[in-house]
Nucleic acid binder design. Structure first.
Lengths: 276, 276
DNA sequence: AGGATGGCGTTTACGCCGTAAACGAGCGGG
DNA sequence: CCCGCTCGTTTACGGCGTAAACGCCATCCT
């Protein structure tokens, strides 16, 4: 597994060979905010609560997050949170928003910052890597990003942030996509990103839960399974292998090719694309 | 390549305006099991409980499902369920399994039954439509299929059922895929299916929740949004449009083309595919 | 026949949950 | 000085998942 020590520099989209480093794994640096936190929480605010919730989910999992426990990590009773957050559900929405917003915050050189870009393909690649970085940084939070209803009911997830959808559509529009094609591209892109990243973080979760469940005689279990499932048995080592980064690049590239085709078809037919 | 030529034949179910019929929308018929149920539950068993849970989630949503409420729909106290189900989490796993197993049950003509097929492309198309039918029949259950950890930790979701993965790998193996390529295909296929269907059912959920939230002055809300988000404003009618079926076919076809390419590359290099 | 047995649903109870409501403690401005 | 405001606490309630004890009743052995 490539935990990678090295940064990315050029990051042109041609990485599919087999010893792929995984630049999306580099951590997002925390804000230099550590003053005197152990001594005193120094007063609550909504942002502090949301950050604490993100951290909590990362460490303990979504199921373990309760208002009381979250409060206690902040040195406060549960009810104190309700002055800043309407309730648990809204808190989760806030967590999603906060995590997605980091797309704009941590520019971190040249990879993730999506405000400035050269061309829609560059934009889509940056956005994809930005989202993937978020997913890998917060694997337990990401399913929330995918499953919460969108902010506006008529916009489809998983991007959820109106700001993000707006920037997406605007970029494609500027790139020459007629509206119809831009929307089709948005959906194809969303579903690709959602599917790949959800699969990837779920795998991470499964690996983790594998570690803390080494219970009674898994050998017998294995053998019975394998008897019924010869193909599974034969490919088990391959199934366990992690080539997520390479597969991600491959699929992303393929999608971009597809969108490129879509763009040219739309242009040639004068923007009158009836179907996808 | 273009494997969708045969398709379905009749299926008049025309619902999404334009031109696209959506055969996956036809309901799966319930078993002819309705004897005297209102008079007496006639005794619990695990299957009855799981079916009741599926129905409950379909009608009330996952969040509303509690042991007490589920019990009461069966005319029974909550604790009675524990004789057949170890706990709530296991019940949810059971729900997922039961729903996925219907892939084999309801053959229903020629579209969904995946045991018998002619070639791997046919199989993948049938499987995709089968899964989509399940997703559309149980939109509130499907996110569960996607987010539960897999049955074996080293197999990645969303298919989750070992039986299904086994049949997938076996079919591709028979179709000439070397193991490495079959596994790559499994992952690409899984992530496509997961992404598309999750997006689609989430949209259904959003539409539903739109209906029961017609609250205070949405007009003002709209205008403020639109001021900040011109591209969203312009494309709103397009974003709301439902072309899921067409987009599904398009993406599926594209994926099959990609897998076909993968197969031939793998064959030409003698099964020695280093990367995807 | 009659008592033991064991399957199955109920009752009771416990601790944790989200959160409504009332309650102070501290503080800055008239 | 004390009013009123901000902000965290206390108390309380109903619902949750579920452990444990408790009937009830059909069946079976003798």
């Amino acid at each position: 597994m490539a935990t990678m020590s090295d940064q990315t520099r050029d990051q042109t989209r041609d990485q599919t060979s087999d010893d792929v480093r995984d630049p999306d794994l580099v951590a997002v640096q925390e804000g230099p905010e550590a003053a005197s936190e152990l001594t005193r929480p120094a007063g609550l605010d909504r942002d502090k609560i949301l950050q604490a919730a993100v951290d909590f989910i990362d460490e303990e999992g979504l199921a373990a997050l309760t208002m009381r426990r979250l409060g206690s990590t902040l040195g406060v009773e549960a009810m104190a949170l309700y002055r800043y957050v309407p309730g648990r559900e809204d808190l989760l929405d806030g967590v999603v928003d906060r995590v997605v917003e980091t797309l704009w915050d941590d520019e971190d050189g040249d990879d993730v910052y999506i405000g400035d870009h050269s061309g829609w393909q560059d934009y889509l690649v940056r956005l994809a890597h930005g989202m993937r970085r978020i997913a890998l940084a917060h694997p337990a939070v990401f399913p929330l990003v995918a499953s919460r209803p969108p902010a506006a009911p008529w916009v489809r997830p998983p991007l959820r942030s109106l700001r993000l959808v707006e920037s997406f559509l605007g970029t494609l529009h500027d790139g020459g996509f007629p509206d119809q094609a831009a929307v089709a591209a948005y959906r194809a892109y969303s579903s690709f990103l959602l599917g790949h990243l959800l699969l990837e973080v779920t795998q991470i979760g499964a690996q983790v839960s594998l570690l803390d469940q080494p219970e009674g005689d898994p050998q017998a279990q294995k053998e019975t399974d394998f008897a019924e499932y010869p193909n599974l048995a034969r490919t088990e080592p391959l199934l366990g292998q992690d080539k997520s980064a390479a597969e991600f690049e491959e699929s992303l590239e393929n999608l971009l090719d597809r969108l490129d085709r879509l763009l040219h078809e739309a242009k040639n037919s004068g923007g009158d694309v009836g179907d996808l």
